[in-house]
């Protein structure tokens, strides 16, 4: 019952190296620990989210044979999940179990040839479009930078979070991403997470320069750096770290906001 009204769909965008994957990994597991059914999706062509979830380097792609070309005269994009395979079936079969009950699914990495990438990309989008929004929370890790994250990649998200470092380059990128996000799928909510905060004024600085509400200010935390160095999840290596505490609190608030807004009920 509680899951019925508390599903949240979040996509994280940000400059390369801003900490999208690390935050997405904590956020997905925190939501799952709070009782949500969570699908963590990685659409970044560079590996990242599986490490931050604590899975090591794994592949959880949608295989070629799960996808077929649409029939003549059928509406929609050129490729779709093969007949009889629903979005839920695809998550059952192709997503991988991550800690805390999170399911992990990945858009094909930059290995396959382009035809295969296009097939899996369209199937990936279809899964996110068709997944019942009331029962599944989605945390998406999008490609870094300003070019790739949009073009419809974030359209499943009701909340797009721009992960921003409090640096000149970070702010410039945050401002650009804020502008581009509004020109794309127009998410219900667009906000910033300030990451690697070292100064009490950082959150206000980011708010003033990007025009975005700041939903969380994650401190620069050695525990995150250490976990990244080891290719492990901060949630496992340092569950009591400040970064985990701040992102866990964000997970609570995102859920409460959904309940408060009556979305999904």
């Amino acid at each position: 019952m509680s899951n019925e009204v508390t599903a949240v769909r979040v996509a994280l965008v940000g400059k390369g190296g801003s900490g999208k994957s690390a935050i997405a990994g904590i956020l997905a597991r925190a939501l799952a620990q709070q009782g949500a059914r969570v699908l963590a999706v990685d659409s970044d062509p560079m590996p990242g989210l599986s490490l931050s979830l604590g899975l090591g380097l794994v592949d959880a792609p949608i295989p070629d044979d799960a996808v077929e070309e649409k029939a003549e005269g059928e509406p929609g994009p050129r490729f779709r999940l093969r007949t009889g395979l629903s979005a839920l079936d695809a998550v059952d079969r192709y997503a991988v179990d991550a800690p805390d009950g999170v399911r992990f699914l990945q858009f094909g990495k930059l290995r396959g040839h382009s035809a295969s990438l296009m097939r899996s990309q369209l199937a990936f989008r279809q899964i996110l479009d068709d997944l019942p929004p009331q029962s599944w929370s989605v945390v998406g890790d999008l490609p870094g930078g300003t070019r790739q994250p949009f073009y419809g990649w974030a359209r499943y998200a009701d909340t797009v979070l721009v992960v921003t470092e409090p640096t000149a380059k970070g702010l410039l990128s945050g401002r650009r991403l804020a502008r581009l996000a509004l020109g794309d799928a127009r998410p219900g909510r667009l906000a910033a997470i300030v990451n690697k905060v070292t100064d009490p004024g950082d959150a206000e600085w980011v708010r003033a320069r990007t025009g975005l509400d700041v939903l969380a200010a994650v401190p620069l935390d050695e525990a995150v750096g250490d976990a990244e160095r080891h290719g492990a999840a901060v949630m496992d290596e340092a569950p009591d770290s400040q970064a985990v505490a701040v992102v866990t609190s964000l997970a609570h608030r995102l859920t409460e906001d959904r309940v408060g807004a009556g979305i999904g009920s």
Partner: peptide
């Protein structure tokens, strides 16, 4: 150039 997102082939 920073391109504005536009629908098209993903």
């Amino acid at each position: 150039a920073i391109q504005n997102p536009e629908p098209g082939c993903p």
